[in-house]
Amino acid sequence: MDKLLISPSPHIHSGDSIERNMYGVLIALIPAFICSVLFFGIGAIIVTLTSVVACLFFEYVIQKFILKRQPTIWDGSALITGVLLAFNVPSNLPVWIIIIGALVAIGIGKMSFGGLGCNIFNPALVGRVFLLISFPVQMTTWPLAEGFHSSYVDAATGATPLSLLKAAVKSGESVNTYLMDEGFVGYGNMLLGNMGGSLGEVAAFALLIGFAYMLIRKIITWHIPVTIFLTVFIFGGILNVCDPEQFVNPLFHLLSGGLMLGAIFMATDYVTSPMSHKGMIIYGVGIGILTVLIRQFGAYPEGMSFAILIMNAFTPLINRYCKPKRFA
């Protein structure tokens, strides 16, 4: 009785927590994971497990021994980084490369800024881009989606739709005829994920299920992913209308590569995306335009990771100048 609690208002809380949001994202990633196991076999499991364990390990070690604070590895953020890093690499990537990627993602991408909430760039993408630049061969040798099998590093490999596109652009031929000649899988298969690519990015429909789940649980808002989809579609569409020989159908952009995975799970990362709805829309438009530009004109076949990282760098600026709609 004489030990009443006193605090300023409000006296109740919604019950929302970091864990609820982080584990919600993980649940939303499950359909995509199941698909990748079905397409890429045992390699998907090995890569994901390695990445998750390595991320948790590095997070624990850095928090405990370098930053000397209470480790918070079970808040789910390192788990997500691990899963997303794995989803962004080919399923036949050697274990040691993944561990290096995890170290860069957690160590440089996150902890060097001070841990959860302080990082500027999406940690998983920092790891992924580091690997892409350091190990270009391993990172762009894509296994084929052959149904469940137990071969890991020695899985059969082939081209992804995006690498075909890049080859087509370079060859100077008509994009559509080139794609057809080189065994393009078709849009239906792209939606299902039946194509080569990084292990988590292929199954567009599974990622969309995750998106719907996160929207229902109110973990994210629709603004960033939908803006990215629309921008890519409209911008790609305009290019396509201008010159269908050189620029591919916008649907191809939407369904290929890491666009779905990036737009739904990585561009929406809380820490590195803007806070206001207006800011989120600007951020989404920026990512969409940069992605199409890199895919069509850049040296790399895939532009999503770079586009997100570039817009991450603009996030503080967007937050500074993009104020939410004030009351009156």
Partner: peptide
């Protein structure tokens, strides 16, 4: 002796504007 427990943000300034103290 303490008569209650403060559970708000750890700041004397906030506590002071709120009430008598612990």
């Amino acid at each position: 002796p303490r008569t209650n427990r403060y559970d708000g943000a750890q700041s004397c300034a906030i506590m002071h504007t709120l009430y008598i103290g612990e």
